[in-house]
Design a protein around this nucleic acid. Structure first.
Lengths: 106, 106
DNA sequence: AAAGTAACTTTGTGATGCAAAGTTACTTTC
DNA sequence: GAAAGTAACTTTGCATCACAAAGTTACTTT
């Protein structure tokens, strides 16, 4: 992927501060509850909900209700596509890192 | 840096699709003209100009008029702060990559 | 039953991205 | 040297978006 493509490869659902943060957190933690997002991101329920909904509508994440003995929680995970997109982005940035390091040690 | 901080560490000037693309391109190419951005990003002059202006106002990039024998061009480069912020972001994502790889080979 | 908690929904507002249509400044062409 | 061209910048207006606030629903504990 060339640097030029960065712009066209990713849509604006993916490339927004809060949502990319959500995806990043999900990539590391695999399963995150609504409440966890609320604590990490802050802001209103509505804002968090809307971002999560957009990520769901965009096919990046999926939600599941988890029924524990004491409570019902909604948890979110990356879809295959969501994981793939994030890895693509990471991979792209990695090539930049590697190239920069090569330049420095020349 | 923990994943949670991603959201708070970077402002929304930095974390917007077009502008982060611009920063990414500048990190690789060091010096980019207005026209080059126009070709890469596409869209109207006004849109490109506004994004560049926001990056300048935010202290991420700086502009310079370059007078060649045949034409005058405005070229853009990262400021020290801009470079630092991007490296911080790359560094953060790198730790995610490394950790994931460690997990995979466990 | 009442209060609490988690998630979801709607509504309204201010901010933002963007195209379009200008303006300015310099440069080439006729 | 006037006209057309090019690069960058600016303003205006509109559509979309992020967000808070204030609800609603569903389940749970007291």
């Amino acid at each position: 992927m060339s640097g030029d493509d960065l712009y066209t490869q990713f849509d604006s659902t993916f490339f927004e501060k809060t949502r990319l943060s959500m995806i990043t957190i999900l990539y590391r933690e695999e399963k995150v509850s609504f409440n966890r997002f609320k604590n990490v991101i802050g802001g209103s329920d509505g804002a968090i909900y809307t971002h999560l909904k957009k990520l769901i509508d965009g096919g990046y994440i999926k939600s599941k209700k988890e029924i524990a003995s004491d409570s019902v929680q909604t948890v979110y995970t990356l879809t295959g596509q969501g994981k793939k997109m994030f890895q693509k982005y990471l991979g792209f940035l990695e090539t930049i890192l590697v190239r920069k390091k090569e330049e420095e040690t020349k």
